[in-house]
Each structure stands twice: as structure tokens, then as C-alpha cells.
Design a protein around this nucleic acid. Sequence first.
DNA 1: TTGAAAGCGCTACCAG
DNA 2: CTGGTAGCGCTTTCAA
Lengths: 339, 339
Amino acid sequence: MRRHPGIKDVAALAQVSIKTVSRVVNGEGSVLPATRERVERSVIELGYVPNGSARILKSGVGDAVGVVVDTIADPFFASLVSVIEDRALRAGMGVLFASTGLDAARERDQLLRLAGQQVRGIILVPVAENHEYLERYRASTPIVMVDRHMEGYDSVVVDDVDATKAAVADLIRIGHRRIAFVGYDAALSTIRSRHGAYQETLVEHGIALDPRLAPPSPAEIFDTRLTTLGLFDLQEPPTAIFAANLRAGIGVADALHGSGRTHVALISFGDFSLAHLLTPAVSCIDHDAYRIGNVAIERLLHLINTPGTLPQRIVLATERLERGSGEIPGPAPAMAESA
Amino acid sequence: MRRHPGIKDVAALAQVSIKTVSRVVNGEGSVLPATRERVERSVIELGYVPNGSARILKSGVGDAVGVVVDTIADPFFASLVSVIEDRALRAGMGVLFASTGLDAARERDQLLRLAGQQVRGIILVPVAENHEYLERYRASTPIVMVDRHMEGYDSVVVDDVDATKAAVADLIRIGHRRIAFVGYDAALSTIRSRHGAYQETLVEHGIALDPRLAPPSPAEIFDTRLTTLGLFDLQEPPTAIFAANLRAGIGVADALHGSGRTHVALISFGDFSLAHLLTPAVSCIDHDAYRIGNVAIERLLHLINTPGTLPQRIVLATERLERGSGEIPGPAPAMAESA
DNA sequence: TTGAAAGCGCTACCAG
DNA sequence: CTGGTAGCGCTTTCAA
């Protein structure tokens, strides 16, 4: 495989100095039209592409922001990255994307790789609880955590606890007592919050906790159908399910519809395409990647342009989409609206 | 915002030469344990991250492959990128991703940006018909086109024409005469192929073409619901719809189910999540991003390791998933199986 | 085992 | 308007 032509090759062919080539390529003024044209022809003839590494090395700053998510195959993160890229492009920057696969070691490698590329800032959906290897690095490059909070860092999250408590409370109000929690993975702080809120709400309403209704569902296993179906092998199966995230929501919907259990109530944390077309349509807590991504990239751009800003935790309110599946009443007598 | 510490800072703090730091960081042998430890402490203390640009500049080759798609928000492309990243990581490379937004100028910018980053190879879902600015560059960096073919380049595509002809022929066989084509965008070669195959099949069966049944549906407009609903304002509305791609399939399903027109037959080019849960379940031509991505990255890795390989067009066979919506009979008398 | 120095491709500074 | 030259941070000879 041949080497790429460099600025010197262009200069030689156009019979000018490399500085002149640099001027033409970067559109700086002060070049005679004739010279300029000669250089441009040489650039095309050789298929010259400026070496970005050299440029970055010389100038000391990169021209991209880094984005690190669990996996791009998840529609929530795909939308998030898409929004961020569009906005970054408008700010004249590219985006360097990487995924962790929910593996802390891989997260570390990817972050260091991005850091080495001199990114101007990083948006991270954190996996590891601890990022101390970033402590120093942060001093020179801003980082915004998304979806999961991390103490001492800037973050953009949603009101997990409130939304979950409200959803579970509503299920109880309409007569459910056996409410399952699908998608429980203690490794993820967001999920832990939601799980905690779920438990708390049950207890507040005097319902005994049954761990079998919140079976572990490691995030590495994309498909939550089996977990869901397992719930119906219990002596007292659930009459309602709370799905802890998008991935879980899709799996639960699939399992319920695939096994004809459409009488089971379902509320999903995260809306998914076609959720509104199922019968009954799936009720969701809307966890809009578009809005979250926009807030995160705006915050990051702000931090890039205004160094020294103190970390801030931005909590976005979610909205509940009541489409039907979450309003299916349970067997217990409906409770009066609590004060 | 402070500057990043460099190898010199580490060397100074550890009281060694920069070469020794380099040795430790890159895990090369021949460093006294005591020295090594001193260096490692300094690295941590300063939060030193090697400058990838300098490394790439010096060595002349990058450590990543580039991937350019229409938009990462499309689940098909998201899966494609995900598969490619996983495989690249296992090959010790990162992935530099960029999206074109279906804009030829943006495609060009993104490609040149990736090229400037010294990527080892590029996987591209092409938008523009012409990439002559890449002609020279190809000599030094392999490129694999995906999903849409381009003469003279390596490509990985599916059997668009055959799959479309078979699907449309089947719709005719079960009694449909008014068959619509949703998602027509003449700017995309893949869609043109599918549209051509659709027209040809109708003509072969003696059915007159009606352009109103294949309304233009520019790819920039993500939502195809309005286009779909418009078809039912025709005096003679369609009894069957062929959706030209994933995006169109989702929109059509949404429109049909949302307006209660579930008696209209539908075959979608591309499977989507939950398609099998609708009533009737949506019949698809399966256009598996996982398989396509795998073949593409394997091909690229091969080209990287074996320069000078001749371009090859790899055509993957698709599979038809008959779930119900594509098997709804039409009003015309069913035709006998053709010889 | 360790260090000094050259140079990757480019831009910035200062001359001409 | 144009060109020479220094040097970005790193790796890679070649010496010590």
C-alpha cells in the first residue's frame, strides 16, 4: 500500500514552497490567483489530503468531541449520538464515538484513546463507578456525564426516582399488588435508583417486597423475554410489570404479546418505536434521547468555551405517556386517591 | 483550560529521559523495576495520556477504521456500526464514525476528515454518485462500499432486485393489482434499483404503471406516514404496499395501523423491532445489518492486510419473513403459479 | 539499562 | 506575495 502524498509532494509538483500550499489549502489570503490555481491542480492530481494528526499536533487542540455510550445498537444511544453529532458539526467539530459494551476496562481504554486524540470535550454514559484515572485529565478537558450521575461531575440525567415512584404508585392505585420489576442490574446506578424507588413505593403502600418479582437481568443480555416469561412460572405471577429501561420494555412487550398475556399491565421506562401501535398500546415514561442529547452537547460546548465553570447536575423532567397498557386495572379494590 | 502534561513532564518528574518514559508506557522491555515504578507513579500523578496525534504522525499509520453512514439514528445503520466496532476492537483498532445526513457535500467533508486522521480503511454507505476526489486516495487506503454498489469499488450489498421482484410477484399472485411503492427517492441508487424491479415486475404481469402509486418520498423526511395516508385519497387506492426500506416500512405500518387499514397488504424491505407483534404481523424482506456489517468489516480487514486485491462485489441473499401482512389476498382472482 | 538527537507533516513566525 | 525555519510530542535509530 502506497504512502499518502504530503504537502511537500504538492509543493514540488506546483513548484512553490510548502508554506504556499498550506496557505491555499487553508484558504488564507495573499496568494496570486495563478499560483493558487497551480497548487489546486496539484492537490487534485495527487489526491492530497492534509494530515489531521500533524495539524492537531501542531495546534495542540483537536477538532472533535468524544462520545462514549453503552452500545450504539440501543436506539436510545443511537439517537443520543445522532443529535450530538449534528450539533457538533454545526459548531465546526466532528465527533469521535466509542462504546463500552458495559465493560469498565473497555470504557477505560476507549476514554484514554479519545483523550489521546485531543478531543475538546467528552460526553460519557459512565459504566464504572470510579474514574479516578480521569481526575487529572478533567483539568484540561471537560466531561459531561449523561443518563447516569456521578458525584463531582457535570451530568444530565432524568428524574428517575420521581418518575418511577409515580408510575408504581399509579399501578397500585388501580389495583395492582403483584408488580414486577424487569431489567434489574445492580451494576448500573440508574437502574439501582429506579429499583430503589420501586421498592420504596411498594413499602410505602404496605406491600411486602418479593425479590422474585425483581429478578436480576444483567445488561449484557440484551433480550429480556426469558426473564419476563419466568415471572409467570411463579405461584403468584405479577399482574403488572414495570420495565426499568428501553431494552427491558421492548423485551417485556415482546414476551407479553408473544405469549398472549396482554391483560398484564405494563409501564416502560423509555418510549420505543411502534409502542403506540400494539394492542394495548404500551404506556411509557418518556425518556427522550433527543432532548437529553441536546442539553448535554450544549452544556459541553458551554464548558469548552467557558473553562472553570463549576460542575452542575441537570435533571430533566420526564413525561408519562398513558396509552393503555399502564392503565389496565388490577385485581385489588382500587384505592382512593391518596392525599 | 490547562495544557495536557506531555512525555517531557513525566520524564522530568521521574528524573529519567523521555525515551525511558516511552519504553514504560509502551511496555517495552529493558527498564529496571525501580525506574519503571518511578515512571508509573509520575504518569499517574500527572494524569499523563500519550498524545495519539504525535504517535500517528510519527508512525505514519492510524489505529482506526472509518465508518460513514446516512444517519446513526436509523436502527439499520446503528446495528451496522455496532458490529463493525466490535470486530475492529478485536482487531486492535478503534472506529471513527461519521454520518452524511444524505448530503453529498457533507459526505465529502466527513470522508476527508477521516482520511486526514490516517484511518487504515473506510466503510462507506455512499450518497453521492461520484467520489472522484477519492480516486487517488484509494491507492493508499482501502474502501468498502456497503448497502449501495459503486462501480469499480469493493462493495457488500443485498440482492435488491431479486428480492423486490419476488415480493411484488407474490403480491400479484395473491390477487393484488393496485400495489404502491412507498419510500421512493430517486437520489438513492438502492432505492432506484428496487423501484425499477417493482415497475418491471408489474409490467411483466401486464399491469399498467401508475406513478401516483409510487409517490416521491425524499429520504430527508424521516416520516413516511403522510405519504402513505395520501395514497388512500386516490380514487382507486392501493390494496397492497411495498415499503422500499426500513424507514418506509415503519412509517407505513404506523400509518396503516393508526388509521385502521390493517386489511391492506404490506411487505417491508427490512425487518424492524416489534414488526412481528403487530396484528397482522408485518412481512419483511430481511436485510440483516449484523450479517452485512460482519462481511463488510471482514472484507476491509482483508484488504488492509492484503493490498492489491482486486475489487469485488459481494451480494448477500435476503430471506423473506412471511408473517401475515404480506399474505393478505387482494381483490383480483388469484393467479396460477407461473412457470 | 539508559540517553541524545533526528524527524514524522504541518503551521507560525519572520524575512525577503 | 512568497519562502525559510523552528518546533508541536512522540518513536526510532544509534551511542554510551
